[in-house]
Amino acid sequence: MGSKAKAYISMAIAMTTVGSSFVVSKWILEVFPIYLASGIRYGIAAVLLFILLYFTERPFPKFTKHDFLILCLLSLTGVCGFSILLLYGLQYTTATESGIITSTSPMVICLISFLFLKEKMSRRQWSGVLLAVCGIAAIHLLTGDTQEIVPGIPRWVGTLLIFGAVIGEALFTIFGKVLSKKMSPLCIATFATIIGFLMFLPFSIYEAISFNFSQPTILEWMYIVYYAVIVTVIGFVLWYYGVSKVPVSTSAVFTGIIAVSSLILSYIFLKEQFQWGHLIGIVCVLIGIFITTRQEKENLKQAHSSELKA
Rank of each mutant, 00 (worst) to 15 (best):
25 S>Q: 02
290 F>Y: 13
171 L>Q: 00
64 T>K: 10
159 T>M: 10
222 M>G: 07
32 F>D: 01
58 R>C: 10
310 A>E: 10
300 L>V: 06
167 I>H: 01
282 I>S: 07
134 C>Y: 11
132 A>L: 07
51 I>L: 12
63 F>L: 12
230 I>P: 05
149 I>P: 04
223 Y>V: 08
193 T>N: 13
139 I>W: 07
202 P>I: 13
227 Y>G: 12
130 L>E: 12
57 E>R: 09
96 T>N: 11
33 P>D: 08
192 A>W: 06
303 A>Y: 08
207 E>S: 01
277 G>W: 04
253 V>H: 05
278 H>W: 15
25 S>T: 04
295 Q>L: 01
212 N>G: 10
195 I>W: 11
80 C>V: 04
70 I>Y: 08
139 I>L: 09
153 I>E: 15
243 V>W: 05
107 M>P: 05
257 I>R: 11
207 E>V: 14
27 W>H: 07
56 T>L: 13
145 D>Q: 03
262 S>V: 01
18 V>F: 05
62 K>Y: 03
282 I>Y: 05
300 L>W: 07
264 I>D: 04
12 A>C: 09
75 S>G: 06
67 D>R: 00
8 Y>N: 03
256 G>M: 13
215 Q>R: 08
205 I>Q: 06
31 V>C: 01
129 V>G: 10
172 F>T: 09
60 F>R: 15
155 R>P: 04
60 F>D: 09
262 S>M: 07
18 V>I: 10
155 R>Y: 13
239 W>I: 14
170 A>L: 08
252 A>L: 02
64 T>V: 07
166 V>Q: 10
86 L>N: 12
5 A>C: 13
156 W>R: 12
69 L>S: 02
293 T>R: 04
85 L>T: 14
301 K>Y: 04
234 I>V: 15
135 G>W: 06
190 T>S: 12
256 G>N: 11
258 I>V: 14
66 H>M: 05
173 T>D: 01
2 G>V: 10
62 K>P: 02
205 I>T: 15
205 I>F: 06
292 T>I: 05
227 Y>L: 14
173 T>P: 12
176 G>Y: 00
263 L>K: 13
303 A>C: 05
247 P>L: 00
254 F>Q: 09
279 L>N: 13
198 L>E: 09
170 A>M: 04
142 L>A: 08
254 F>G: 00
288 G>K: 04
286 L>H: 02
164 G>E: 08
60 F>M: 15
85 L>N: 03
97 E>F: 14
286 L>N: 02
119 E>H: 01
105 S>W: 05
85 L>Y: 03
113 S>Q: 03
30 E>Q: 08
186 L>Q: 03
123 R>I: 12
269 F>G: 07
290 F>N: 01
150 V>L: 11
178 V>P: 02
237 V>I: 11
133 V>N: 07
14 A>S: 11
196 G>E: 08
204 S>T: 08
270 L>A: 10
51 I>W: 06
105 S>H: 03
286 L>T: 10
274 F>Y: 11
294 R>V: 00
1 M>Q: 09
138 A>K: 14
67 D>P: 04
222 M>D: 06
43 G>A: 14
197 F>W: 14
109 I>D: 00
167 I>T: 15
149 I>H: 01
197 F>K: 13
